[in-house]
Structure formats: C-alpha cells, structure tokens
C-alpha cells in the first residue's frame, strides 16, 4: 500500500509516540530494586543478561537508562507544556493588549533571546532552589521566547484579516472573536510548538544536570548517568556513556521528527502534496 504524505506523517508520528510512551511507562514501571547495588556484578560489559552492561556498583544500565529517560521525558514534557502556555498567553497579550504591552513583551523576548539558554536556565534553577523543581521552572521560563514571537505575529495577522474585521461589524464581541476566529488558528502552532520545544527542554535538562546544577544525584536522570560515567570512561567502560547517550539522542530526534511532520501538515504550501 502506498501512503500519501499526510498518512505517512501520521503513521510516523504514531510510531514515535508509541516508542516514547513505552520508554516513559517502562521507566516508571521499573521498580527500584532492579537498579539496586549488586557488587557481585560490577563493571560488566554488555551481555544478554545486561544488554547495556552494569556500572561500578553493579547496577543494570538498561534499567537505569530507562528510568533516567522517563524522568527526563517527564521533566521535558512538563517544562515544554508550561513554556508553550506562557508563549501563547504572552503572544496573545502582545498582539491584543495595546502598544505598551506589546513593547514590554517584545523587550522581554529580546532579552531572553540575547542570553544563552543554558546560562539563564542555570541562574533561574539556582535562584528557585535547584533540584527537579528548579530545573522545571528554569526550563519553563527560558523556552518560551521564540514561540511567543510566532504566536504574536500570527495573532496580529489574523486580527487584521477581513473576516475578523467583518465579524466585529456583525456585532460579535471580542471574546467571541478570540475564541471562534483566532484560537482555531493557534491550535496547530500550539502543537507544533510543543513538539519542537520538547527536544530543547530535554537536552538542556540533561546538560544542566550533567553540570551538577540540575536534578539531585540520587535521581537516576540521564544527565546524572552521563556525568557519573565520565569518571569511568578512561578505564575503558565505554558502555556507561554510550547506550544512555544514544537513547537520549533517539528520543530527542523522535520528538523533533514528530514536530517536523506536524509542521509540514499545517503548512498551507505543502499541505496538499
């Protein structure tokens, strides 16, 4: 069966979603006793019993990685959703609440875009007290600016459209126009934004944690796993970093892929191919 572009996009998205949900749920279901210290099986290279090998405390790396990824995906999802919500609110406010609101929000966007994500993220995470809460708040507060710009432009454009102007003259309220005319146009931006923000959030989470300023060391987050493994790389234990890193890459790429496919579906110039 030959699939058209729209069908294949949906299929790809479905497969990647299943993969991600599997990792998330799998990680959550793995009980903590699967990754307890087991000094008998220390430093084992990958084998059938331990496909990802074990670490210097004899913990199974496959389960640790799954657990770590599911924490990362969870953190990423919460942070990306919060970011998107911030972006939508600010974008709509900038476009509808007059010149001063627009100037203030645009200034904020420029400010956040001019400072590197990671620096800002570390600062915020540190200020709110670190840990998982710190990382989530930090991620949420740093990833909204570019989407805000997109949403602001979109709302401005729709607001000026003839059909919105006409709706006003047909006696419709601002509220009606916001909900019925403008909002439906933002849903695709919302979804695509979510999927494109997620990989950023998850990578930054891993990076901050890797640097020791994110999640606490007893949570097996992917960043922690990677940073710990650094110390053992020189002793030839390559699997400690390789498999977790690869899986992280796959997950990030999967989200990126979904975002791209969705974007090509909502792009009117490519939508009918």
């Amino acid at each position: 069966m030959k699939l058209n572009k729209r069908q294949s996009a949906i299929l790809m998205s479905a497969i990647t979603t299943v993969l991600l949900v599997t990792i998330l749920v799998g990680g959550l279901l793995v009980s903590n006793d699967r990754i307890v210290t087991n000094l008998e099986y220390r430093n084992l290279p990958p084998s059938l019993a331990h496909p990802f090998g074990t670490d210097w405390l004899g913990r199974d790396m496959l389960f640790r990685t799954l657990k770590g990824l599911s924490i990362s995906i969870g953190v990423g999802l919460i942070a990306a959703t919060a970011s998107v919500i911030i972006a939508v609110c600010l974008g709509i406010m900038a476009a509808t609440m007059g010149r001063i609101a627009d100037a203030v929000i645009s200034w904020l966007v420029d400010l956040f875009l001019s400072v590197p994500h990671l620096v800002m993220l570390i600062l915020i995470a540190f200020v709110v007290g670190g840990g998982m809460k710190g990382v989530i708040i930090g991620l949420a507060l740093t990833h909204w600016p570019s989407l805000t710009r997109v949403i602001r432009a979109e709302v401005m454009q729709i607001k000026a459209a003839d059909f919105v102007q006409t709706s006003r003259r047909l006696g419709k309220s601002r509220w009606f126009i916001a909900i019925k005319h403008i909002f439906p146009h933002l849903v695709p931006q919302f979804l695509v934004g979510l999927f494109l923000l997620f990989p950023h959030a998850i990578l930054h989470e891993a990076a901050v944690t890797f640097l020791g300023m994110g999640l606490s060391p007893h949570q097996p987050a992917i960043g922690i796993i990677l940073s710990e493994s650094m110390r053992y790389l020189s002793t030839g234990m390559w699997w400690l970093a390789f498999f977790p890193g690869l899986l992280l890459l796959l997950v990030v790429r999967a989200f990126d892929l979904i975002g791209d496919r969705l974007r090509s579906l909502v792009d009117p110039y490519r939508a009918n191919e």
Binding site: D162, R168, L170, G171, H181
Partner: peptide, 18 residues
C-alpha cells in the same frame, strides 16, 4: 459596538471568510 448598520462587501471574498 454591536451590529453595524452599514455593511461592507469586499472585492476579494477569499479573505473575508475564516
């Protein structure tokens, strides 16, 4: 505000419908 007693029909209907 409210229904405008003077209504306008544009040249290009494509832009006047959501």
């Amino acid at each position: 505000t409210g229904y405008h007693p003077v209504q306008l029909v544009f040249q290009h209907p494509e832009k006047a419908v959501n």
